[in-house]
């Protein structure tokens, strides 16, 4: 434009700090970590360093723990549809342009904004089976409303409040020792507790704001015209609003997948130490224990790269099918 075809020198100057940081703290480490994943590098130096090629990856495929923790990571994603559906529901409620919407938006966003160690410590106290308020309320309901008396009368055993973070049971009945299902494991336990907390944190967060923005872009004439035609609210939503939101939904689902694949570290470290019996250990927490508690840098890098490969595939799918209008 107008005499300045090429600002390449200035551009190089402006990019320099960021590119330098990127090379040192992202690109370099990426290459390094790939290389290390083909070795048996142990920071404690108990084992001599050796290039082991694909051995680490082969070991990983046979590693029962890896597969259990992979399943845990997937299991914890079960809250995703609830969180995303809830975000959409809240966004629809908030998009009515009534007075006071900003106040509600602020309140809903609060858990996302404050999420971190303090909130996890809070939830640990809430879930405490003997002292926590959640079980206090459940016990009070079971006794106060005579639910257990009623159950006793019809010959069922009394209901007890769940042990939450101390319990290996889960709704699908996943086995603790190997990948599979056993009836004895069916119930409510640590993983459900983390899912509930996760939904609480995410429901009014960034996804709700993205839906809120997308909802304001739905052409109002369409909605009004359909209403005049006598379409019910549900039909207007199903046939006009929902299709218009499809790109946003797609984007949110992909980002949630990528986020949850890497997630679960903080809650495992702060609330459960990955337990009970490893049921809340996700791949991210597994990498942490391998690298920074057992110092098996090589093996931990191999796990990290498997994770990266999965995320890469999901991102490729995103690029192939995702709508351009959203990502730019």
């Amino acid at each position: 434009m107008k005499g300045r075809q090429n600002d390449i020198l200035a551009a190089a100057g402006f990019l320099l700090p960021n590119i330098l940081g990127f090379l040192v703290f992202t690109a370099g480490p990426l290459v390094f970590s790939l290389a290390v994943s083909f070795s048996n590098w142990n920071l404690q130096r108990t084992i001599p360093f050796q290039w082991t090629g694909l051995d680490g990856y082969r070991e990983l495929m046979r590693d029962n723990e890896f597969w259990l923790y992979f399943v845990n990571t997937i299991y914890l994603m079960l809250g995703m549809p609830i969180a995303i559906g809830g975000s959409l529901f809240l966004a629809v409620l908030l998009s009515q342009r009534l007075r006071g919407m900003v106040v509600y938006r602020t309140l809903f966003y609060l858990p996302t904004f404050t999420s971190g160690v303090a909130l996890m410590i809070l939830w640990k106290a809430l879930y405490n089976p003997s002292f926590g308020p959640i079980n206090a309320v459940i016990d009070w309901c079971l006794q106060g409303f005579g639910i257990n008396d009623l159950l006793h009368a019809i010959g069922c055993g009394p209901l007890a409040a769940p042990q939450w973070l101390l319990e290996t049971k889960n709704l699908l009945g996943l086995d603790v020792e190997q990948v599979g299902f056993v009836a004895a494991q069916r119930g409510i336990g640590a993983r459900e507790a983390l899912i509930i907390m996760g939904v609480w944190i995410a429901i009014g967060g960034n996804n709700m704001l993205l839906y809120l923005a997308a909802l304001t872009n739905v052409p109002q004439e369409l909605v009004e015209a359909a209403q005049i035609d006598g379409a019910s609210r549900w039909r207007v939503f199903r046939h006009i609003t929902w299709p218009q939101l499809a790109p946003t939904t797609f984007f949110i689902v992909v980002m949630s997948f990528i986020g949850s694949l890497q997630g679960g570290f903080e809650q495992a470290r702060v609330m459960t130490n990955g337990g009970p019996a490893g049921t809340t250990t996700t791949l991210a927490y597994y990498i942490y224990t391998k690298a920074f508690q057992e110092y098996q840098i090589g093996y931990a890098s191999a796990v990290a790269w498997i994770l990266f490969a999965i995320i890469f595939v999901i991102t490729l799918i995103n690029w192939k099918f995702g709508q351009k209008e959203l990502s730019y």
Binding site: P29, L30, Q262, A284, A300, F308
Partner: peptide, 13 residues
């Protein structure tokens, strides 16, 4: 899209 966890270990080293 590079997961932070991949670069975390080398950055520590």
């Amino acid at each position: 899209m590079i997961p932070g966890i991949v670069t975390m270990i080398p950055n520590y080293v």
